[in-house]
């Protein structure tokens, strides 16, 4: 696949071969006529570019981090302009589309005429494509994060602390969640206090595992004391792991909360790292 820069250069060369405005328009019209029509489903309100004098639709798919663009218009000239944008951007990475300075358009000549039309059609089309590129690039970066779910019974102490600690220290690679099989309905105040001591402000809610059954996790970690309590079983998707931590709420001693907190901060990152390495193998 050629880069956007290479295609730009090609377009500038193509257009510079054309002598005058008339020939440039004929070329645009040819480009428009050679592009397939969109079907009626693709000519939806959502695909319609606002701010154009004529109707123009962009049907854009985001696959991985790339944009795949089809376009149509009831105006052949506008469709020709859309065809140039399709040549330029379709199949390219979203972040490269966003990084493109479309100043080259000036060099083609004729564009000044087109873009100054009422409604600034060209600007509206570019804005539409850029918005899709942004959405596509956000989708990608969100999906790049691994999702981990920490499970225990009450979702009031250990799983809450694990969620908070990982979100505070590993948010570049991980997005952490927590839940319990029998949610206590509150987060233990001493768990919140213990987190606060190490600079983490946590405002968790005690949640049921049912809330996450539809979510795809990369990793699910049970953090209860398997020797002394019944541990929940995760039936959803994702790799499973287990770490035993004693239930600090049994003693209600602040020091017990600190001990569990420090143990989590020490053990869980090691587990995540091991997972990352295995995944990249």
């Amino acid at each position: 696949m050629r880069t956007i820069q290479e295609i730009q250069k090609q377009l500038i060369d193509d257009f510079s071969l054309l002598e005058n405005g008339n020939e440039k328009f004929d070329y645009l019209i040819d480009l428009g006529q050679s592009m397939p029509e969109l079907d009626t489903k693709q000519k939806s309100e959502a695909n319609l570019v606002k701010g154009c004098q004529s109707s123009v639709w962009f049907s854009i798919r985001c696959k991985e981090d790339k944009l795949f663009i089809e376009a149509d218009s009831d105006s052949l000239i506008v469709k020709g302009i859309a065809a140039v944008l399709v040549q330029l951007f379709s199949g390219q990475k979203a972040n490269e589309i966003l990084a493109t300075d479309i100043g080259f358009i000036e060099q083609i000549g004729l564009w000044r005429q087109l873009s100054s039309q009422r409604g600034n059609g060209l600007t509206a089309m570019l804005t539409h494509i850029r918005a899709s590129a942004e959405a596509c690039s956000e989708q990608k970066s969100a999906s790049k994060l691994n999702k981990v779910l920490f499970l225990c019974t009450g979702n009031s102490c250990r799983s809450q602390m694990a969620e908070a600690i990982i979100n505070a220290s590993h948010s570049d690679k991980w997005q952490a969640f927590s839940a319990g099989t029998h949610p206590a309905g509150y987060v233990h105040p001493k768990a919140i206090a213990a987190l606060q001591e190490i600079g983490i402000v946590h405002q968790g809610l005690s949640k049921s595992t049912n809330e996450f059954l539809g979510t795809e996790f990369d990793l699910v970690v049970t953090v209860c004391d398997s020797a002394n309590e019944e541990c929940p079983l995760w039936l959803g998707k994702g790799k499973r792991a287990h770490y035993s931590f004693p239930d600090p709420a049994l003693t209600d001693d602040m020091q017990a909360f600190r001990n569990v907190r420090d143990a989590i901060a020490l053990e869980i990152p090691t587990l995540l790292k091991a997972f990352e390495e295995k995944e990249t193998l």
Binding site: Q53, S54, S75, V78
Partner: peptide, 19 residues
Amino acid sequence: QHYDMGMLLDLSGIAVRTG
């Protein structure tokens, strides 16, 4: 399309309104 007609007439120096 009316827009195309307007643009092509403009190339011949003819100013009309479209829309």
